[in-house]
Design a protein around this nucleic acid. Sequence first.
DNA 1: CAGGTGAATAAGTATGACAATATTGGTGAC
DNA 2: GTCACCAATATTGTCATACTTATTCACCTG
Lengths: 258, 258
Amino acid sequence: MDRSGGRVRHSGDLIAALSGRNLAHNLHSDVLWDLGFAIVSGQYAQGSILPPDTELLDRFRVSRTVLREALKTLAAKGLIEARARIGTRVLPRNRWNLFDADVLAWHFELGPEVSFLQSLAEVRIGIEIEAAALAAERRTDDQAGLLLAAVDRMAAARTPEEFARHDLEFHKAVADASGNPFMASISALVEMALTAAFTISSPVNEPEALEQTVAVHRAIAQAILDKSSQRAREAMRIAIAEGFARAAGRMENLESNP
Amino acid sequence: MDRSGGRVRHSGDLIAALSGRNLAHNLHSDVLWDLGFAIVSGQYAQGSILPPDTELLDRFRVSRTVLREALKTLAAKGLIEARARIGTRVLPRNRWNLFDADVLAWHFELGPEVSFLQSLAEVRIGIEIEAAALAAERRTDDQAGLLLAAVDRMAAARTPEEFARHDLEFHKAVADASGNPFMASISALVEMALTAAFTISSPVNEPEALEQTVAVHRAIAQAILDKSSQRAREAMRIAIAEGFARAAGRMENLESNP
DNA sequence: CAGGTGAATAAGTATGACAATATTGGTGAC
DNA sequence: GTCACCAATATTGTCATACTTATTCACCTG
């Protein structure tokens, strides 16, 4: 863990860039990402105590202000808890806020494991199925129009990035139409899942896969348009499950044919 | 907004105490809760700019360090974003991390509206249904035992607090048995929903309601024991929907008979 | 009128000192 | 010999002030 010399750009930039997030690089965020990743990757075990301020100060060569703000940010995300005289303890994983974009990004930074992608797909199924059903009950005509338009743009996409952007747009539109603020709040999750999945394998390059993906998304839009919550549920489940299956299959291929 | 004189204890302490969270009161957390609540309550509109550091410093009578750490914490939860020369902007609500325990608590602090409780119930249904189904597929014998034990303790509870504690314990056990880390991560959500619901009306005081609540939880446990994911799904949906319906009904009563 | 240039403003960073707090171990009373 | 209490100590919490950097807006030049 020698950080001698030039500060290393973290690979999280990739995901941040893809998702259009601002990537203002200040000192604080460097320290934050370094520590956040170290914790998520298990380098600092759950329940263990981080090195005291003085040591971290020396390691990162930043001021106390910067270090403490980074630690406060980690605390806000539920990763650590500081107590006087004791030190800064890494909290057990069930206290971490996994629905946080950064925490999620740190998980992906150590190479997305299939099991993690699967867990992600499972929660997405739970939440987005319900979002689709609610959208079918509550949608306005405008919202339905947006959904159909997004599907058309997916079908017309020519690059993986373009496809992913419109796919995300579609899922955000569903969340929006559900009228439930919590649904909109998990777009960070969807974003991460989609960019991860498309980094591994985009349907754009396989005509029949593309056609299938577009078709199932169109089915969701149509069900919502028809105000059929049951059909919306089923179609959404298929969309997410298929997306995960494609990524998982590709990863296994990569393992056998490197 | 004159805060002349003694600092006011925030009512969030109630929820924090009920949920067994540590309530170490440092300056930083005072400022944090004050600002967080002000934002969530709409006192600072989405998209608006917070007063500059100097003014907040003067208002709270704390050091710059404390103020900035509070702001960093809010930023970590997605409520604000600081930009040089512009100021600190309140982000739109869809950027807020509603799955954060604090953000959730601030929402409840301004009197839980029925619509908010409903949104909460909707996401819970989505996530916990899936958790129950997965638990049915993956449970170990030990985990099944814990579930049944929790139900028994619910049935034997004599006070609302006791009942709420074991109810929460039950839902945590389900999340744990699902083997999906995301499911465990939302216990903050469940916690808040349950304490809120029981603050409004606890089934402990109504024998037939208690019996019904226990019965449906026992059905969930039994389905998971039997490895029947479909029955687990249905029972979980009923459990959450009934809990919400009871609270909502009680709130309407309170409105007409104050 | 277009485009560059600099002043003003707000956040970002640095530093050193002091306060609060909880563990640890020792000290004394029973 | 055991227990309760207290002091030493290590670690985070807070403060005050100064300086740096980035960004916008207005002005000024071509």
